[in-house]
Amino acid sequence: MSYSNSKYIIVFLIVCLLVNTFVDSVAIPQELEERSDIFAKLCGGFKFVSPKAGTKIKNGNTIEFKWTKNKDVELYRVLDVELYTQKGLVQVLWSKGVNFTGTSCSAKVKVSVPSGTKLPATFLFKCWGSTKSGPQCTSVSGNFTITK
């Protein structure tokens, strides 16, 4: 290797070192909040209240879903209820949407699995909520058994 080639390599390494030094020392403004703090302001306390995890639900029955959220969070609407297994989304059960009144809301949803699904089986419910500033929130239930 010639002296001129090694000179370029040394310059390249010095540039990399300087870039790394400046990138690592970028200051974050104090106004910028932690991600968890922002999530708490948008979606804090968003959860299923009922049906309770462990409940057995008969396929085709209509049941009442209830949700809560913390006071003063931006979440204002539950958008849907989805049926899940460990393998992923089975189907959307309901997508009419319902607005929170204070810190709670509810909706009646028909729970049905696709024909050909072997029952009884274990499922989860997932729902999406919406905030006025755009970000979406999710809540996932505990396990449920859906029977024939």
Rank of each mutant, 00 (worst) to 15 (best):
E34W: 13
E34P: 07
R35F: 15
R35W: 15
R35V: 15
D37M: 11
D37F: 08
D37E: 15
I38A: 12
I38N: 09
I38T: 11
I38G: 01
F39G: 12
F39Q: 15
F39S: 13
F39H: 13
F39N: 13
A40G: 03
A40S: 13
K41T: 12
K41S: 08
L42A: 06
C43W: 02
C43H: 04
C43F: 01
G44L: 05
G44C: 08
G45F: 00
F46C: 03
F46E: 04
F46K: 02
F46N: 04
K47W: 07
K47D: 11
F48R: 04
F48M: 00
F48N: 02
V49K: 02
V49S: 04
V49Q: 03
S50T: 11
S50V: 06
S50M: 07
K52W: 14
K52Q: 14
A53N: 01
A53K: 13
G54H: 01
G54T: 03
K56L: 05
N59H: 10
N59R: 02
N59Y: 07
N59A: 00
N59D: 15
G60M: 10
N61L: 04
N61V: 12
N61P: 10
T62H: 02
T62G: 01
T62E: 12
T62R: 03
I63K: 05
I63M: 03
I63D: 00
I63R: 04
I63A: 00
I63Q: 03
E64L: 14
E64F: 09
E64G: 05
F65Y: 06
F65G: 06
F65E: 01
F65M: 09
K66T: 13
K66Y: 01
W67N: 04
T68G: 09
T68A: 11
T68I: 13
T68S: 13
K69V: 09
K69T: 04
K69S: 09
K69G: 03
K69H: 03
K69N: 02
K69E: 03
N70V: 05
N70F: 06
K71I: 10
K71T: 04
K71D: 09
K71N: 10
D72T: 12
D72E: 15
D72S: 11
D72L: 11
D72A: 13
D72H: 11
D72P: 10
V73P: 03
V73G: 02
E74D: 14
E74Y: 01
E74L: 09
E74K: 02
E74A: 10
E74F: 02
L75H: 02
L75F: 07
L75Q: 07
Y76R: 05
Y76K: 01
Y76S: 07
R77F: 10
R77D: 10
V78Y: 08
V78T: 09
V78C: 08
L79V: 12
L79S: 14
L79M: 14
L79P: 09
D80Q: 02
D80F: 06
D80T: 07
V81I: 15
V81F: 11
E82I: 07
E82F: 07
L83T: 00
L83H: 01
L83G: 01
Y84L: 12
Y84P: 04
Y84H: 10
Y84I: 00
Y84G: 00
